[in-house]
Write a protein that binds this DNA or RNA. Structure first.
Lengths: 219, 219
DNA sequence: AGTTTAAAGTGAACAATGTTAACATAAGAA
DNA sequence: TTCTTATGTTAACATTGTTCACTTTAAACT
């Protein structure tokens, strides 16, 4: 008679940790319940005592994923020691690098497959905590300081987001030889993007040499 | 004894047509072999006489999909009756609208899931046929005409592509109330993007009022 | 302490999926 | 006509998520 380890203790937490670790390495499609039961040494159906179904686990992963994403990408937006323009440059870089470092998680958070779960989560969460709101606020600061064109800050935030999302997606979905081209590509992209956002005839203050060189008023 | 319809005739073509039609309406994930066998009135394994496996069918769909994509998005790049700037504006709009009209196909063509198939296909195909090459050539024309900044045309093409891919993905993957915001959003995005690409002190010729208003030299 | 109860495990079974193998039929070439 | 081959069929398989009836154990309540 086999002695079973009933009452594992913190099985729920283990499932979450294992799932997060798995997604750090492989696509969420390959995360099966068998992977989880094998890793925890439990039976295939043990997980159903802790999550309603697989989607409920994914929901937790997405929740944790957004926390991780916010923690790793928004820091400069709240860092008042940084010049405003630099906030955009550095935050954008953190964004793309997060996607590069966590391609499977990024796809899980921003892809279509689990959009229904994401929407449910984001509708519950306090929207003011999100990175998007912080971005929008930074844009509004830029407008007040005369650095950015006075325009709908929501639209401008979307423009910036779409650009970063686009380059991130192209990179992690296999359209670019990442290590070769990434650095130069990001700078070109950022220059182009910001040229369209900054107000004319304003001297840009930045500690990043590239930005000083490129974004000075032309007249 | 049931009379079976052996030798369907053009079953392979039917599978392809049905699959394309299916993806026009639903996600490729839901395209199962059962869907195909039911739709053709054949057995579950009939498809294996025409395709090595499911991936081989998907490969055909992707191939057809790229043909469709090129046919529906690149027309203005070769239309010499259009002003150069308008080519970008109109092509970008066709791009986003293709994604909006064919979200499932767009995701299939540009997503990660079948990237291995896409890469195999694109490595075989003549690269000069692709829309990207046409975009790059148009950029080079713009540089020669002094309309666009003289820079690496490959990088500039990536910037434009990333921007359009980004906004398209955000829209079809559920981040925007599409009908509400799309038109205005696209214009803002395009203005911002193009401001960063055009050469300064050059009068832009366009038949699109928006572009005339926004992109004139400021001095 | 002893009993009850509920939480947290187990294994067997389901239907749906892609896939393969053995078999059946029909069409065309010899 | 006969043989071969293309093109179909059915049955079976492993893997997937999921449910159900059962078992065990920790803790709560006399």
């Amino acid at each position: 008679m086999i002695k079973h380890d009933y009452h594992h203790g913190n099985l729920k937490e283990d499932f979450i940790t294992i799932a997060m670790d798995f997604i750090a390495k492989e696509d969420v499609e390959k995360l099966t319940l068998k992977v989880l039961s094998d890793a925890t040494g439990t039976s295939r159906s043990a997980i159903y005592k802790h999550f309603k179904n697989k989607d409920a686990l994914i929901e937790t992963i997405i929740e944790n994923g957004f926390d991780k994403f916010d923690a790793e990408t928004t820091q400069y937006l709240h860092d008042e020691s940084k010049a405003l323009i630099d906030k955009f440059y550095l935050t954008g870089k953190l964004y793309v690098e997060f996607a590069k470092r966590n391609p499977n998680l990024y796809r899980l958070l921003f892809g279509k497959k689990y959009a229904h779960i994401r929407e449910e989560l984001l509708s519950i969460k306090d929207e003011d905590c999100s990175g998007f709101a912080a971005l929008q606020k930074t844009i509004e600061d830029g407008q007040k300081q005369g650095i950015l064109k006075k325009d709908d800050s929501y639209k401008q935030a979307i423009v910036i987001w779409a650009t970063m999302h686009g380059i991130s997606s192209l990179i992690i979905d296999g359209f670019m030889d990442v290590e070769e081209i990434y650095e130069a590509m990001y700078d070109t992209l950022f220059e182009t993007l910001l040229s369209g956002l900054v107000a004319n005839k304003v001297k840009i203050i930045s500690t990043i040499p590239l930005l000083n060189k490129v974004l000075q008023p032309t007249n």
